[in-house]
């Protein structure tokens, strides 16, 4: 699958998602409608503070929405992708897929 525009697929990568932890958080949330903070932390295998920073950055980019609530008396934080975040992740994954397939546009000799 090659890009009909001839543009290198790296241009489809999203800088806000590209970092490994951000990518893992986005991948988890893309599969979920909503996921609890602890569930994402355990899956991505990061500390609470690193996940908080990552979520803040993704929230600032408009990709993640945070909802705080309670189950009984226990506070819980729920994370979800915004529509914009879902679209951005889908585009990022499509670009990765193109790169993984090795279908890069030919390099022109200049």
């Amino acid at each position: 699958m090659s890009d009909p525009s001839g543009e290198h697929p790296r241009h489809g990568l999203d800088e806000a998602i590209h970092a490994p932890v951000r990518f893992s958080v986005m991948a988890t949330l893309a599969a979920a409608e909503e996921a609890e903070f602890g569930f994402v932390r355990d899956g991505v295998q990061v500390s609470d503070s690193l996940l908080s920073k990552t979520v803040s950055a993704l929230e600032k980019a408009g990709y993640v929405e945070v909802r705080k609530g309670y189950v009984g008396k226990r506070p819980r934080t729920w994370l979800r992708l915004s529509n914009r975040g879902r679209a951005a992740f889908a585009a990022h994954v499509a670009a990765l897929r193109t790169i993984a397939d090795g279908a890069l546009p030919p390099v022109s000799a200049e």
Partner: peptide, 10 residues
């Protein structure tokens, strides 16, 4: 309600 940690998309 208590045991749920995530919900699948959709």
């Amino acid at each position: 309600v208590i045991g749920r940690r995530s919900t699948r998309y959709g």
